[in-house]
Nucleic acid binder design. Sequence first.
DNA 1: ATAACATTTTAAGAATCATTTAACAATTGA
DNA 2: TCAATTGTTAAATGATTCTTAAAATGTTAT
Lengths: 107, 107
Amino acid sequence: MMKPAQVVKALAALAQPTRLAIYRLLVASGPEGLAAGQIAEKLKVSPANMSFHFKTLSHAGLVGSRQDGRFVYYAANFTVMNGMVDYLTENCCGGNDAVCKIPSKKC
Amino acid sequence: MMKPAQVVKALAALAQPTRLAIYRLLVASGPEGLAAGQIAEKLKVSPANMSFHFKTLSHAGLVGSRQDGRFVYYAANFTVMNGMVDYLTENCCGGNDAVCKIPSKKC
DNA sequence: ATAACATTTTAAGAATCATTTAACAATTGA
DNA sequence: TCAATTGTTAAATGATTCTTAAAATGTTAT
């Protein structure tokens, strides 16, 4: 189970319009990911601001990066998001199945 | 599907140690919820600060409240969290099942 | 080497957020 | 009614965050 501080960091990383949009683009792009510049262009964000947001997402463990030539490719890492959801729904509904409103969760 | 701004608001509401702890207590407490004072005592948070955080969680749609005598009971509302998770995982892995790493999600 | 390209770093300013204190409602019981 | 209990609101302060601009790093092509 993730530690609270790490969950907070992941939630905070996603709680920003630009970063949320970045993350969703990467989620939809699969393991190959996208180059920083492609995302910047698509979202109309300056390179410097892009880097700032990537650092936050990286530091939270939500994305990884690899360098390919002069491009840097970013890709979503689902481990942290899965952990985040598990943390939020842990022990949900006090163990009462009948009452549980979380799909894919057996309370 | 939720609007981005609402998702950001929900994520931001949970991206704070005290509020995350509050929410988890409520998730585990089921539909009956807990009185504000019980949570404040358990988490060692001042009433004023507690109210501040409740307002944030309420405004994000993550919790609801009802008055019972002189107590105010708060309870988790799972709709927004489910919507949040759906939003994050929408179109995940570019539709490639084999690669998907999200349990309970059929890409 | 030199220039062009892709991204990161640094520094600065404005905006937002969390916490505390004190004062304010609302409900119950004497 | 009066006092005690429960919780909210408002104002003030300190800390964090977002954005921009400028300079710097690393990579490729000429």
